[in-house]
């Protein structure tokens, strides 16, 4: 479930990156972040599948709920990392303008 949520997040951000008008939001970084996590979780899932076989696709409701929370939390963490980096690098100069005004 975590892998599935991360892949959906990666695909959504990639589509958003492809249709962007300019690069001021630095969406590419978020794409790399989510795809990196997706690939790593895919390998984790493959090894788990090799061990559990068909049982891998029948998780308990408790595990599924926990994995869903984990996936959503990981997506939120990725967004926070991207946002902090965006504000620090400040490609649009909004933060600098605000600091000069105050």
């Amino acid at each position: 479930m975590t892998l599935l949520i991360m892949v959906f997040a990666a695909v959504t951000v990639t589509v958003k990156w492809y249709t962007r008008k300019d690069d001021s939001m630095r969406l590419g970084i978020l794409c790399f972040l989510y795809w990196g996590a997706s690939i790593m979780w895919l390998v984790d899932a493959l090894f788990e599948y090799a061990e559990l076989r068909a049982d891998y696709f029948a998780p308990s409701p408790e595990d599924m709920l926990n994995d869903t929370f984990l996936g959503l939390s990981a997506v939120a963490l990725g967004l926070v990392i991207w946002l902090v980096r965006l504000l620090v690098t400040d490609p649009k100069g909004s933060v600098r303008r605000m600091l000069k005004q105050s």
């Binding site: 972040l33 990196g36 690939i39 790593m40 979780w41 939390s73 963490l77």
Partner: peptide, 17 residues
């Protein structure tokens, strides 16, 4: 580096979880 650090950050978060 973006791919690696992104994956590491998420996996580290999972391990803390």
């Amino acid at each position: 580096t973006y791919l690696l650090w992104g994956g590491v950050a998420m996996l580290a978060f999972e391990h803390i979880w």
